[in-house]
Amino acid sequence: MSTPLIAVTMGDAAGIGPEVIVRAIPRVAEFSRPVVIGDAARLAEAAAICGVPLTPHVVDEPEQARFAPGTVDVIDLGLIPRGLPFGELSPVAGEAAYQYVRVASELAMAGKAQAICTAPLNKEALHAAGHRYPGHTELLAELTGVPEVSMMLATDTVRVIHVTTHIGLIDAIERIDHGLVERTVRRGHDTLVAAGIERPRIAVCGINPHAGENGLFGRGEEEEKIVPALERLRADGVDARGPLPADTVFFRAGRGDFDLVVAMYHDQGHGPVKILGLEAGVNITVGLPVIRTSVDHGTAFDIAGTGKADAGSMVEAMRQAARLARRT
């Protein structure tokens, strides 16, 4: 019972969340105690589709979980109607996905779970259910009462934290300022220190090609929006380097020059990580009062319900959640 208890949200029931969960559960017992917040019947259906001998064990509270081999402990909210099609957008599934996250956040805030690990939800389904959030990150920030958080993607070779995420590129450039850059770097720095990296080496990307090349490209965004933040960070002893050209910094991080890359906008950070493979990345929300990790892929409606989904990212997300929880 010394391993962390992790609240695992089932995500969008029409996507691959139920399948990656039932595939992952038998592989994570060594380092975690997972309790799924979801729908027991849907998990049983996913287990049958995947050919995984796993039977749901319904509990009302995490304390009732048995963590017995061949079972998956689940707080069954019973929100998914029998026969809900896989691979189709559903406001019902969107509402359920929201409720799974709400319950998981309440458990974590109450200390009944040491971490949250989320299966993917569908933003369009979430919006169709009346919950207007760009994604998990913003939803969890509101549920836990935090005004600002950051998204970090972690693989075996590269870690990336984002200054902005789910907004358009023009809006992202407008939103970036030296205060936001500084706060993002500090959140990343503190997370790595908490994970055991005593003095993280942090590379900060520029906004323009070649990081502006001394004013040749762009309108001076690097000097205005990034450099003042780096000066303050370095004065406080944070090893933050940049602004650096994004087209080479990820290669350097991959060979071990940096412990963390700070990306200015969504695709600048996501593209290089996802080329490593969707099963390789883990999404960590930085700045919450609770630990939250997630798979780094979507609901994959095109293969949902076929049993083809790979659970590698879910296993790694749960491993990272357990590791962070143990250190905390």
Rank of each mutant, 00 (worst) to 15 (best):
A65E: 02
A65Q: 05
F67L: 03
A68L: 15
G70H: 01
G70S: 05
T71A: 09
V72D: 00
V72E: 02
V72C: 07
I75M: 11
D76E: 04
D76G: 10
D76M: 06
D76Y: 12
L77S: 11
G78H: 06
G78F: 00
G78T: 09
I80G: 00
I80T: 07
P81W: 01
R82H: 14
R82Y: 12
G83F: 08
G83T: 04
G83H: 03
L84E: 02
P85Q: 04
F86Q: 07
F86T: 04
G87Y: 14
S90K: 10
P91E: 06
P91L: 03
A93T: 06
A93L: 06
A93I: 05
G94M: 14
G94P: 12
G94H: 10
E95K: 11
E95V: 10
A97R: 03
Y100R: 12
V101G: 11
V101L: 14
R102H: 15
R102M: 15
R102G: 13
R102F: 15
V103G: 07
S105F: 12
E106I: 01
L107M: 13
A108F: 02
M109W: 04
M109A: 13
M109N: 09
A110Y: 05
A110Q: 11
G111K: 11
G111Q: 08
A113Y: 10
A113C: 04
A113R: 05
Q114R: 15
Q114F: 06
A115I: 01
A115H: 04
A115V: 04
A115N: 04
I116V: 14
I116D: 06
P120N: 08
P120C: 09
L121G: 08
L121I: 14
N122R: 15
N122A: 07
N122Q: 10
N122I: 13
K123P: 08
K123S: 04
K123Y: 15
E124D: 12
E124T: 11
E124G: 11
E124C: 14
A125M: 12
L126Q: 00
L126E: 02
H127T: 14
H127Y: 13
A128W: 08
A128C: 14
A129M: 08
A129Q: 11
A129W: 01
G130A: 07
R132N: 09
R132S: 10
Y133F: 12
P134H: 03
P134Q: 09
P134A: 02
G135K: 01
G135D: 10
T137A: 10
L139Y: 07
L139E: 04
E142M: 10
E142A: 13
E142F: 13
L143E: 03
T144V: 00
T144K: 06
G145E: 00
V146G: 09
V146I: 14
P147L: 05
E148A: 13
S150T: 15
S150C: 12
S150Q: 15
M151Y: 01
M151P: 01
M152F: 00
L153S: 05
L153K: 07
L153C: 06
L153A: 08
T155E: 02
T155F: 02
D156T: 12
D156I: 14
D156E: 15
V158Y: 12
R159T: 03
V160H: 01
V160I: 03
